[in-house]
Design a protein around this nucleic acid. Sequence first.
DNA 1: TAGAGCCTGGACAACGTTGTCAGGTCCAGG
DNA 2: CCTGGACCTGACAACGTTGTCCAGGCTCTA
Lengths: 349, 349
Amino acid sequence: MPDTPRRAGRLPGNRYGNRPTMKDVAARAGVGLKTVSRVVNGEPGVTPETERRVQEAIDALGFRRNDSARVLRKGRTASVGLVLEDLADPFYGPLSRAVEEVARAHGALLINGSSAEDPDREQELVLALCARRVDGLVVIPAGDDHQYLEPEIKAGVATVFVDRPAGRIDADVVLSDNFGGARDGVAHLIAHGHRRIGFIGDMPRIHTAAERLRGYRAAMEDAGIPVKDAWMSLGVTDPERVRRAAEEMLAGPDPVTAVFAGNNRVTVTVIRVLAEHARSVALVGFDDIELADLLQPGVTVVAQDAAALGRTAAERLFRQLDGTLLAPDRIELPTRLITRGSGELPPAD
Amino acid sequence: MPDTPRRAGRLPGNRYGNRPTMKDVAARAGVGLKTVSRVVNGEPGVTPETERRVQEAIDALGFRRNDSARVLRKGRTASVGLVLEDLADPFYGPLSRAVEEVARAHGALLINGSSAEDPDREQELVLALCARRVDGLVVIPAGDDHQYLEPEIKAGVATVFVDRPAGRIDADVVLSDNFGGARDGVAHLIAHGHRRIGFIGDMPRIHTAAERLRGYRAAMEDAGIPVKDAWMSLGVTDPERVRRAAEEMLAGPDPVTAVFAGNNRVTVTVIRVLAEHARSVALVGFDDIELADLLQPGVTVVAQDAAALGRTAAERLFRQLDGTLLAPDRIELPTRLITRGSGELPPAD
DNA sequence: TAGAGCCTGGACAACGTTGTCAGGTCCAGG
DNA sequence: CCTGGACCTGACAACGTTGTCCAGGCTCTA
């Protein structure tokens, strides 16, 4: 009979592919279980000679500590979860990376998931992460009711919301100044002589979209310009519909001479439409986009710092875990207007 | 005396913030431990009435199953790891998202980490993921020796390498046709009359960079054009140095009339340099970039499908886990030349 | 009405690790 | 030679879950 594998006959044998455990290492090194544990964790109180023998057995068997068991015993997973809308969106890449860097500095791994802007999927993801007992959560909300998180937060899961505030729950939030940024961007167009300014943005149920719309309205009101419904297009985000919305604004009886685009995806489509348009139309977009400076004209944008959002949120998260953070707070990061040409075009009527 | 918390006196009380366990739920519902387990896992053999009582207790206590314990018992974590270079790079966002979608379809979560192109950090990340007993790994290698993974793979961790092949180990690999893509791109420039063509790429120790360089050389050789050292710049990736390299090629005694850019970051910088350059210079870049069609001229690129890379790799990973996949294989996905203007400019000498 | 068979529920061990604690060895000092 | 302390080492329980197995109560049929 060949070597009988450990646990033979008890399981098909594919449990972790039959990995060696500390017990196996201990047997091979001729020491106690706990001594192996000590060596693996670099705890003091082991003779160099013993340590050498254990280390040898570890290498020979290819032992790797099972963190699931460790977590079960210790209660901390050294991992944090990040739930965002879509990792493929260039806005979230740097944000995610920033969270990862902070986590790494604290010795934690990052688990992330995309909600695809679906509240149910967000909840499903968040709860799955809680079941894994992540130490903390950074969430970019898709839904607007986060009461389902209350038991988790009570149970000690550190939580920070980013980019959009949480709904019906008191928690840390890190936001960009969407209102101020949009207001400044629109005011910039007004300062360059525009009065008929269009706004194309996402569904107002998304907080950022609503705030930017509010900024648009505020700037118009400050300048004493009445806003026409035909100048506003809300809830529009896929390229086809943005295109149609932009074309309608440009063609109506009261055509706009400038457009404020509510996010990076809208901006890109609007650029395409304007490129085909005969009359010159000014444009300011929310969110910076790569190569914006190389287009003709350069694209003027209200830029937010995605990496700073992620970093700030993650740092708050770990301060919650340290216990150095007291009450939940709302932090707002400033935006920056970057003028490159498209926002400085004069009205062409 | 107020309600004494469970485990009072044993621990500071912050272990998972004292979350309820199945035992607690069982006690509250007045049933046995295993019955709670059955309800939580939707196993048959529980009366509706009992199930209701248990469910009530679960809701009241805010119970959430501890997946660490579950994993320890079951041996599968339902999570896969993804190690890539930099999540903030727009090339990796869609790739990561594609892996996530496939994982999600298989009920698994995605843990990902950025190696920052550092082999040590790659190994550290991979081993940390193995310690968490991820079921599988998708790795975009930073280093060129992956023997350290051998015990893990033997132990049953499914593994697929993407974008670059693994070093010194036999494993599944999913690649783009870097050689063919680069050769076609350069041949395209040659077909438009260019003979002095520059190449700017990353360090040849990176497989993709080496393959693209090889494609460049092959195309030149096929056309019988001797390549001058001054036309090639390798290992250059930060904007400052790419800029200098490009300027030198354009200014030398034998100035290039066209440039092949080895990756998206190089392309972007070269575009900037060319925009300031008096003479018209043709450009083909490897990797597509957003808005490439809106520049003047549009940027001709060799596009690879990042999402397809991720999807293909993840699908192979789960086929390994199903056991339906046999021997390790090497899959090469085609690239696509997208002509937009910059690659069709005639030589300007 | 008794026995067979089915359904529901619970006791118990095991997963691999770490914290606690006690035993054992070795040496210095009395 | 004995005592005490410092230092190593290992036995054991516990973390929260799931798989196995058995007990008890029910229904149905002969």
